[in-house]
Amino acid sequence: MKIKNNIAVSDNGFIFNPASGESFTVNQVGLDILNLLRKGEKQETIIQQLSEKYQADKAVIERDLSDFQAMIKQYHLIQNEE
């Protein structure tokens, strides 16, 4: 899963999709995920990195990550809609 190239993500968690004109906000964990996705990181790597940074079980992170990914997919922020 990769974020569309033209999506602008600012440091304070403001996201703008120039193709649709829609904007979004994300919290810190969401911002971390977006940045990792943008780098093209794999699911496992994202979970690993988040679990190193935050106090949480991998299982919890994995569950939340898939929910979050479903949301960004729904918002059409994903490349060639897997």
Partner: peptide, 11 residues
């Protein structure tokens, strides 16, 4: 400018 909208929306 979008920056302004971003500024008021997030802060």
């Amino acid at each position: 400018d979008l920056n302004e909208f971003q500024q008021i929306s997030t802060h």
